[in-house]
Design a protein around this nucleic acid. Sequence first.
DNA 1: ACGTCGTTGCACAGCGGTGTGCAATGATGG
DNA 2: CCATCATTGCACACCGCTGTGCAACGACGT
Lengths: 208, 208
Amino acid sequence: MCNDGAVPTETSRTRAMRETRDRILDVALDVLGENPDAGMGDVAAAAGVVRRTVYGHFPSRLDLIRTLTERAVAEMTAVLTGIAASDAAADAAWAAFVTRVWPVAHRYRVLLALRRGEYGDAIHGLLGPVDDLLADLVARGQESHVFARHLPAAALSQTAYGVVFALADSARSHGTPDARAATVTTLLMLGVPEERAVALAPPAGPDL
Amino acid sequence: MCNDGAVPTETSRTRAMRETRDRILDVALDVLGENPDAGMGDVAAAAGVVRRTVYGHFPSRLDLIRTLTERAVAEMTAVLTGIAASDAAADAAWAAFVTRVWPVAHRYRVLLALRRGEYGDAIHGLLGPVDDLLADLVARGQESHVFARHLPAAALSQTAYGVVFALADSARSHGTPDARAATVTTLLMLGVPEERAVALAPPAGPDL
DNA sequence: ACGTCGTTGCACAGCGGTGTGCAATGATGG
DNA sequence: CCATCATTGCACACCGCTGTGCAACGACGT
């Protein structure tokens, strides 16, 4: 009993357990990313543990997905709040957002598939705040006449958001698109003129 | 025995059978559109028929999906070949395509969800020709400097295609976007300047 | 009137995934 | 050295869906 602070005792046992838990989560992103219908057994096998162990950390499949989603929401909001706080123009802010979210979007692309079907409601609720932040950013751009108004901010932000994930996904299969292409494409559909879109996009962009 | 021509005898029995078959197909589009994981039982119930009857028309679930896909491919190619044949500019052709495909896309939006997961390969093969036609149209536009080149034609066409479906889907839930909005949005992301995109889009567009 | 045939309602077996229970194992901490 | 505990490797029941078999029923065609 030597735990004075709030640190919950990092013994070697606790650490090993946390590592297993994290490995399960990491590997679950990959496995479910390739096949959203993969079962707990597939995740366990990919993580090098037995199915029973996974249930030891996550009582139900929904718990696993929820934890994954919470992780994603945390990373997304971290990126978004940092950018929304800046007083840059909306198009520049969007470009920065896509660039910084590109690697993250690739990892969490599964959430877009998981959003429909079986866990839709649970995930949708957790992803709500992120959606709102995006809609606000786009709405700001529309009000300052930087973005076009051919669609309401909510629909436009969701569509552009979806395109980023779709491109990240196709990058995994065919390897062509990179962060720069995703930035240009989404800026274009937001109504930014091509010249400025190209100027705002990151120079070369590592494709993963 | 009074069947002289190639018409396969349209007795009242044959017609009734064809009607149930068509009703199953129609209703399957709706049911699977709302939940791609719906089972044969759900489809049967929605069609006012017993599960066993569905298996009478479609020996397996895959047969149902395949028939649905073949239907979709037929309608899509009908629209596409008619447009690709015209000598209009690529952006005008794309605008015409989106306008005419908009109602169809709404009905067959499920195919985009079904494409990943479980039946992906089977559907992907059938949808291949449509993909090629779209890629050709976009490539033509890129060569004539009507569309931007921020993405290869294959990726760009697929993304724009996906956006049409995504907008048709969100139209079902929120009711806001219409064919005009979809046309403008996709033209923008193809690199068409906003002014021309708006000019090419259909005037008012029925939102369903 | 009688046979055909689509439909029905039930039965069944099979499969795969979920979630749980429990004894055994082995490493860690006291 | 001993107790704890995460992990393991089975076991099991439960569920839902698929696909099939078969005996009715009933409408339609001849």
